[in-house]
Simulated scan of single mutants.
Amino acid sequence: MAALDEIVFHQILHWHHFYDRSTTAAGLVSDGLLHTAELLALVAGFFLFADLRRRRALSPAHAWSGLFLGLGAFQVVDGLVDHKVLRVHQIRYGVDVTPYDWAWNLAGVALLLVGAVLAVRAGRAGAPGERLP
């Protein structure tokens, strides 16, 4: 989700930088640091994913639930903590941000709900190799 946010809202639409409370140059550096962190997280995640596949311990249902829970968690934390509590940036400037805030946070909650439903289903199905009573 960080990659989608950074690519779409920071680079393509130019709506904001990760840190907008300073100069444009500082904002660009903050975007670069966010991009670096997101790429490191993606690479680490792919190595962990590959390790689970190698050990035949991968549960696709659990992986999908984790993906959606992570997407939603990032979006809700970004929307509430970064946008409202820390105020490091807003979704967009020069407009009433209320509809953008609602859309951003509700989309994050929807992703969390999808992840939660998938997690419950995955839990009912059990882990690979696990025998259910």
Rank of each mutant, 00 (worst) to 15 (best):
S65P: 09
D82M: 13
F9N: 14
L58I: 05
M1W: 08
D101P: 02
G79R: 00
G79E: 00
H16F: 02
A50M: 12
V114P: 03
R124D: 07
L118S: 09
V97N: 06
L71Q: 11
G45P: 02
L34W: 14
A119G: 02
R87D: 05
A127L: 14
L132N: 09
K84W: 08
H10E: 14
G32C: 13
A50Y: 09
L34I: 02
T23W: 06
G79F: 00
Y93H: 05
E6P: 00
L71P: 06
E38T: 13
H62S: 12
A125W: 01
G70I: 10
P128D: 02
G27D: 13
E130M: 02
R21G: 09
V29L: 13
V29M: 11
V95I: 00
Y93P: 02
P60Y: 06
F74N: 03
P128R: 01
L58Y: 07
L132A: 07
V43R: 03
D96V: 00
G27I: 08
G108P: 02
R92L: 05
V85D: 07
F49H: 05
A122G: 11
L52C: 04
P133F: 05
A110E: 08
A50F: 06
V8C: 13
L13R: 15
I12M: 14
L34E: 13
P128K: 08
Y19M: 00
F18V: 10
L48R: 05
L42S: 11
A57M: 13
G94A: 01
A107M: 10
I91F: 13
R54K: 15
D82L: 03
I7G: 05
G70L: 04
W104R: 01
L80K: 00
S65A: 15
W104T: 03
E130V: 01
A116K: 04
R21N: 13
W15L: 11
L71W: 14
L34H: 12
N105A: 03
L86A: 11
L39C: 08
V43N: 03
P128W: 04
R131V: 14
V8W: 15
L39W: 14
E6N: 15
F49A: 02
L42W: 05
R54G: 06
G123K: 13
A122N: 10
Y100Q: 04
R92N: 01
D82H: 09
R56D: 03
